[in-house]
Design a protein around this nucleic acid. Structure first.
Lengths: 257, 257
DNA sequence: CGATGTATTGAACTCGATCAAACAGTGTGG
DNA sequence: CCACACTGTTTGATCGAGTTCAATACATCG
């Protein structure tokens, strides 16, 4: 859902860097025969440069893609020529679930920076599903997670104000970095302000203004695309803010100015 | 994504009414052995009354559910005690994909009217996946469709104004009725104004106002929960409206490389 | 019938969009 | 090296769609 850019690779980054990185979740625990065959079917990773597309809406969908490194944005082209970004994706994410029903992709996926992916042909799944049922179970779990992420996005769009959206965006980003083994308080954004605004369904200007406001409040420090989180608890507090409006508990006068 | 209520069952309704209705998509084309075993594992359908919950967020997820009839809302409970409806579901939908990753449901599903569902234990899938790979493929397709629907919801929340959201809501509802073999221009809403507003992320009052406006424009006729679509083309036109703002289409080609 | 939840309509306010203008970083060619 | 263009970012001023608050009507059911 969120992505990070690793311009200056931090030392803490644990990058296995073999071409199956994004797939360990799939391979682990499979029986050796299945695993070997699967590795054959997948082959080496492919490198995409910033701006290159992994697949486009409308193209035939015959594979899943496993992100080894880098980051991507997934978006739909709208009737009016604009795009709507529906998610950011990063290492260990699986892409391509969208096109299974009528065998063509429903959105476009584009690299935000130099990124590595492995391709897993759907035919391979059919071939292997018999020999190890775990394979499909794993995939279902990955998909399940994506559905969960979409839910979060829906709630974000439906209930959160601009401040909360941006706060949540950075917190999510931070937790993603943590999962990757990177330092999680210094983030190099791989996406532009435009991308962030588009994803959060805000005006670009609103994102800028909020960044300034957050910086003035001491929540974070912004330097172009380098963002340093200074007060994550403060960001979390913003997310909980409408609770305060809510409970007619007791001493309201103490809280409000 | 949308649901209909069948209070006065119209004659055009083709209801097979055996307890596997929601499952035909799964069963069709499977080999006989698998099919028979699967039917055994599923058993008879269960009836839920309005307000009853199919499952709740946090509960252990060990099954998928296939809707035979009726309609449901799926929602997440928010910190502040409110709920966010993330989708409506109706006959032939499959529910329960959300909880696969950490084996507990991420949202609650509640019947909007008397509804029938079949339960498909996940263990059954494991048992059968070896004997017929089609089974998992079918499920993946259903999930894929749900992801597609969520995408639409995200775009709806992100890009559409109130008018467009409601117009799209009714058009979707109409197409759902069509799929069910019902008359598609007379809709009996199974959900309240509150539910609609919540799902569309609008204030309840806004939904009311728009209903009045749509009625005054001759787009539809509202009588409490009975809605008759009078001008579907008009509704579609509302969806396309921001195109008109957009293209000063004259010398656009000069800009492009 | 009254009572309680549901729906409609009006008036005022607010958050974020839009319009506008300036500024910063990056590359290109003279 | 600087001037230029180009893209991405920041900040200010204004405006409007939709929310919120409030009051009223409707419906459903004991």
């Amino acid at each position: 859902m969120a992505s990070i850019q690793v311009r200056n690779k931090p030392e803490t980054r644990v990058c296995t860097c073999h071409h199956y990185r994004g797939m360990e979740f799939l391979l682990a625990g499979l029986n050796l025969e299945t695993r070997t065959r699967l590795e054959q079917l997948i082959g080496r990773q492919k490198i995409l440069q910033r701006g290159q597309k992994l697949f486009m809406a409308g193209e035939i969908s015959d594979s899943l893609y496993l992100i080894n490194s880098g980051s991507f944005k997934a978006f739909t082209d709208l009737d009016n020529g604009e795009e709507q970004i529906t998610g950011f994706h990063f290492a260990d994410d699986v892409l391509g679930f969208d096109g299974l029903e009528d065998e063509q992709h429903t959105y476009t996926v584009e690299a935000l920076e130099t990124s590595g992916i492995c391709r897993l042909p759907l035919s391979a799944l059919d071939e292997l599903s018999g020999s190890d049922p775990k394979l499909y179970q794993r995939l279902l779990k990955k998909i399940s997670r994506q559905i969960g992420n979409k839910h979060m996005t829906i709630i974000m769009l439906g209930r959160m104000n601009a401040e909360q959206r941006l706060a949540q965006f950075f917190l999510k980003l931070s937790s993603v970095m943590e999962e990757c083994g990177c330092v999680s308080d210094r983030i190099n954004l791989s996406m532009s302000r435009y991308d962030i605004a588009n994803y959060l369904s805000l005006a670009l200007e609103t994102v800028c203004r909020l960044l300034s406001r957050f910086q003035n409040s001491g929540l974070l420090k912004v330097d172009n695309r380098r963002v340093q989180l200074l007060d994550r608890e403060g960001l979390r507090h913003i997310l909980r803010q409408d609770d305060e409006k809510m409970p007619p508990t007791v001493a309201r006068d103490l809280v409000l100015p």
